[in-house]
Computed example of a mutant assay.
Amino acid sequence: MTQASSLPLVERIGRLSAELTVAERENLKLMLSMAAGGLLVGHARQQPEALRREALETAQRSLPKLHDGKRPAFTTGIVFRGRAPFFTDAEIAAMDEESRANRHRAQRFHDHYVTSGAPLAREMALSSDINAFLSERVGPVLPTYKANYLYYDAPGLGIDPHVDKNEFALNVLTMLEHRPERRHSELILYPPEQDPVHIQLAHGESLVFFADSVTHQRTRTVAGESIRLVSFGYHPI
């Protein structure tokens, strides 16, 4: 048995990823994400529970390993959660207004709607305040010029468990609206070897997290529920 083959599977996947091209690593990430997501929503129930649990843990623990140590010490994947200092009240209000005005442009992407590249959102994504805030916490980052308004405003919209593409490796997600007051849909993060993290953001609050490394989902909306968010993508250097 070779030294590499005697390593735990998670470590072997990490070593493999270091030998892959960017495109190949994205494909590996997609396969691991699909495996984790499928197990989380109940696929493979015909398999013994212990085997399903081990497979899920392997997929989840392998995802951060794909980045060759270029992530800070990984716990939940959350960098920040709360009312962020990099947005003023006026900026939140302006993005709120722009997201409403651009709803008619939104295109369906799987089970939610997206408007990309609105002028103010794109400008805010390049904000020096956000860049400084992120750099202080995770080291230098590059904006990926991805700025999306997200809409979940019909019954049954949401996103199944997944990880994000490279453009949203580090995701700054800000809540612009979630009504009514009694909410059903929520964001759930599934960090490896930990309990799920259930997140409800208030208006103007942000979540900054490593969206390419931790499996997450938006649970489905119900009748009368409406959610609008703005999402900015960054890449750690």
Rank of each mutant, 00 (worst) to 15 (best):
L30H: 02
M31W: 04
M31L: 11
L32N: 04
S33A: 13
S33R: 00
G37R: 00
G37L: 09
L39S: 10
L39A: 11
G42D: 08
G42Q: 08
H43R: 13
R45C: 12
Q46D: 12
P48Y: 10
E49G: 14
A50E: 15
E54T: 14
A55Q: 13
L56H: 08
E57Y: 09
R61Y: 05
L63Q: 03
P64W: 09
L66Q: 12
H67P: 00
P72A: 07
A73V: 12
T75K: 08
T76S: 13
T76M: 03
I78F: 07
V79D: 06
R81T: 10
P85Y: 01
P85R: 00
T88N: 10
E91K: 09
I92E: 02
M95F: 03
D96K: 00
E97A: 07
E97L: 01
E98L: 02
S99E: 05
A101V: 04
A101R: 11
R103E: 10
R105I: 10
H110L: 14
H112W: 12
S116Y: 03
S116L: 13
P119F: 09
L120N: 07
A121G: 06
E123V: 12
A125K: 01
L126P: 06
S127N: 12
S128H: 10
D129E: 14
D129F: 08
I130V: 14
A132E: 15
F133K: 00
E136D: 11
R137Y: 05
R137A: 08
V138G: 06
G139D: 14
P140G: 05
P140T: 07
L142C: 12
P143E: 11
T144I: 05
Y145N: 09
D153M: 06
D153V: 07
A154I: 00
A154M: 06
G156I: 09
G158H: 10
